[in-house]
């Protein structure tokens, strides 16, 4: 366990080192937060509530979700490069669990990005708009837990997409398709309450909502009591299913893998 904790910390440190890049990214996220907010506000000129969100909810959503863009905007893990080049072989005979290693690495990276790239656009946005943020510590804790589960679900999905490289030998096309589907069904493009009913039902039945839409609904206080527990339960279920799927696929891949050379 200690090992994975260290991997997580280094993942965090590695990405917090690129300061200029981080600053540039924060600026981009903030501007996109504003663009999103203005587009949604134009909708609320004519409607009071869309899909359970009022204007304040929607604007808050626009800024908070910017932090998750880093996570949802890439369909694969860096591991895909190592599979393509064959370097994955050295990873496989190390005495660590491949999936746990990359999960720890990813948590370290994403936790940093989600927190920073979510908070700064949110603070800047709150200078211009009325944003709805709770001061209830229990709700904030529930959001933190839900966001963390969202990151694990997203990792489980990206790990699966990454493993397809073992069979397809390239990941760019697959990764792009995965990105498009994820961005749309997670609610990154628009809150899924904006979708037509049938599409919203479909989106809620897929794992993508658990990555973004559900955590933000928690933050906006849309779920309480047993409803909240059920939501967290759904997230745990997706996390377990996707991670287990990843393990099955990984063992199939290792059996298939042929190492060249002697």
């Amino acid at each position: 366990m200690r090992l994975y904790w260290e991997v997580l910390r280094r993942g965090f440190r590695r990405y917090s080192t690129y300061r200029a890049a981080t600053l540039a990214g924060l600026f981009t996220n903030t501007v996109f937060g504003f663009l999103k907010a203005y587009i949604l506000l134009a909708v609320y000129e004519q409607r009071d509530v869309v899909g359970g969100f009022d204007a304040t909810d929607a604007v808050t959503f626009s800024f908070v979700t910017q932090g998750f863009f880093v996570m949802l905007g890439a369909g694969h893990l860096e591991l895909a490069d190592r599979i393509q080049s064959g370097d994955v072989v050295t990873d496989l005979y190390r005495p660590v669990d491949l999936q746990a290693w990359w999960l720890a690495q990813d948590l370290g990276r994403i936790a940093f990005q989600v927190a920073l790239r979510g908070c700064v656009p949110f603070l800047v946005g709150s200078l211009v708009f009325d944003l709805d943020i709770t001061s209830d510590p229990a709700l904030i804790a529930a959001f933190a837990l839900s966001a963390l589960l969202g990151i694990v679900v997203s990792f489980g999905h990206r790990f699966l997409v990454t493993l397809t490289t073992f069979w397809l030998l390239d990941y760019r096309g697959t990764s792009q398709v995965a990105t498009v589907v994820t961005m749309f069904f997670s609610g990154m493009i628009l809150p899924i309450g904006f979708f037509p009913d049938w599409l919203e039902a479909l989106a809620r039945a897929l794992p993508y909502a658990a990555m973004l839409q559900l955590p933000v609904e928690v933050l906006l206080g849309k779920h309480t009591g047993s409803d909240l527990l059920a939501l967290l339960g759904v997230q745990v279920l997706w996390a377990v299913l996707l991670l287990a799927g990843g393990r099955v696929l990984l063992s199939a891949a290792s059996r298939k893998l042929v190492i060249q050379g002697g």
């Binding site: 690129y18 890049a21 600053l23 540039a24 600026f27 981009t28 501007v31 996109f32």
Partner: peptide, 13 residues
């Protein structure tokens, strides 16, 4: 050197 994403704000944005 490292500010590539800054330009993205104005192009993709």
């Amino acid at each position: 050197v490292d500010s590539g994403e800054l330009a993205n704000t104005f192009t993709y944005g």
